[in-house]
Simulated scan of single mutants.
Amino acid sequence: MRSKLFVPCSRPEFFAKALAGDADALSFDLEDAVPEGDKAAARSRLVEWLRSDAVASSGKRMIVRINALDSPFFADDLAALAGIRVDCVNLPKASSPAAVRMVAVQMESAGIAADLLVNIETPRGISQAAGIAGAHPRVIGLQVGLNDLFASLGVDRRDLRHVQTALWSIRLAAGEAERFAFDGAWPDLADDDGFRAEAELARSLGYPGKSCIHPRQVTIANALFDTGEDVARARRLLAAAGEAGTRGHGAFLFEGAMADAPAVAAAREAVRRADGNEGTA
């Protein structure tokens, strides 16, 4: 999942355009993108769309960002998703493992057979991130929510030093629970360079993709997170490691550089991800 495009449920005219676009996944937003007075109508429009033949035949991953557990809209959001195609539920503002388990249990009771992607976007959430990631088998990963997190703390959103600190912390928490971490959205539509810089940072930290709020950002994300060349190199390294092993060598020269057990483990992980063994990442 290199790119995940947010689609506001207050703007149903965007639904078909998003489905026809290049994003690997679509995240239909019932939370921040929908005014309180339009929540019910937006929810109904989304359900109708997700029941359409167009969605049924699409290979894109369908994600729905519902409203937070402590909001007055949570219960209706979750109930509306029963019996329709939803590949993943995106839970915002998760604050504890217990809250995530509660949501997972309610999903099971409602018959919603979807994964959970959990947002880390509050100070408490980031302090509990590892526990949240491992709270329930339905949780496939953590999604970064820097806008809310930084705004609540008065942190400069454009300073990459601060971004790196947050991304690294959330990546470590996800890794501890053997889940993936997915990068959040860059809010400035006019600043492609800012989006690219943040995406490059996320990629360097092992994030598989980035959230987008415009199709132009999707193009950038798809190019940056295309791992084809990296995976090909990893397969070559594993083949070379096999040959070295037959000669009794633990370390060996590979394409001009020394490779050893950590390099082999990293290559094996890259191939595992590429072969689809890490959820949606």
Rank of each mutant, 00 (worst) to 15 (best):
M258Y: 07
E200Y: 00
R179K: 14
R11I: 09
L172H: 02
T122K: 10
T165E: 08
F28L: 13
D38L: 10
H214E: 07
L205G: 07
G245L: 08
M62C: 03
L172I: 07
G242I: 00
E108K: 03
F14E: 13
P92V: 04
A266S: 12
R157H: 10
L146H: 15
D22I: 04
D87Y: 02
R138T: 14
L224V: 15
R161Y: 06
G21S: 14
R138V: 12
P92D: 08
D148S: 13
I63P: 00
L253R: 13
L91C: 03
S169V: 09
A199K: 09
R51V: 00
A185N: 06
C88G: 08
N67K: 08
S169R: 05
E108D: 15
I63G: 06
G83C: 10
S27R: 03
S44K: 07
F225C: 06
A266Y: 02
F180Q: 11
L50R: 04
E13D: 13
G131S: 08
L205N: 02
A281M: 06
S211H: 15
V155W: 01
P12V: 05
S127A: 14
A240M: 13
G154W: 06
L167Y: 14
I120A: 01
V218M: 08
A281I: 06
A173G: 02
V144G: 01
F150T: 11
I220P: 07
D77P: 12
Y207K: 06
